[in-house]
């Protein structure tokens, strides 16, 4: 895991219309996962993880995690996708679901809740909810 400049992170977040900054330090893994921590010290121990994973840098853009979407939603002005009951039900169960928006990355909203960050391709919202977090039946 290595430091990544805030300006590089916010350059990616501009896609969501995010201009205002949160005071934090960012790290990125080799796999492109971005972690955010309000402050950092060197700890002479094996670091397993640090801060909160807010998203992943992918080939075509930045995809928020559920927590990343919840934190940055208030700062975002675009790329927000409202899910209906059926789509939410698929989302929490880890199932890809059909949506009617153009390709891209979205912050997913259901009623008043921010439920994640997703990628849409060819009318399908790809599901990235981890297996251990999925709900079998709502």
């Amino acid at each position: 895991m290595k430091r990544i400049k805030s300006r590089d992170v916010y350059a990616m977040l501009e896609y969501y219309g995010i201009k205002k900054r949160i005071n934090a330090i960012f790290f990125v893994t080799e796999g492109g996962k971005v972690f955010m921590i309000p402050k950092y010290i060197d700890v002479p121990a094996k670091i397993y993880s640090l801060g909160l994973c807010i998203g992943k840098i992918e080939k075509e853009g930045f995809r928020f995690t559920i927590e990343g979407a919840q934190i940055f939603y208030n700062l975002a002005t675009k790329q927000i996708l409202e899910l209906n009951d059926e789509q939410l039900y698929d989302w929490v169960r880890g199932i890809n679901t059909k949506v009617n928006v153009k390709d891209g990355y979205y912050i997913l909203k259901y009623k008043d809740d921010i439920v994640g960050g997703g990628k849409v391709k060819n009318g399908v919202l790809w599901n990235f909810v981890k297996k251990n977090r999925r709900i079998k039946k709502l």
């Binding site: 921590i37 950092y40 700890v43 121990a45 094996k46 670091i47 801060g51 909160l52 927590e67 977090r133």
Partner: peptide, 18 residues
Amino acid sequence: LAANLQRLGVSNVIITRK
């Protein structure tokens, strides 16, 4: 531990193994 702290949105943490 990491999965729970992620779900709960905890950002002010460094997880170590020792």
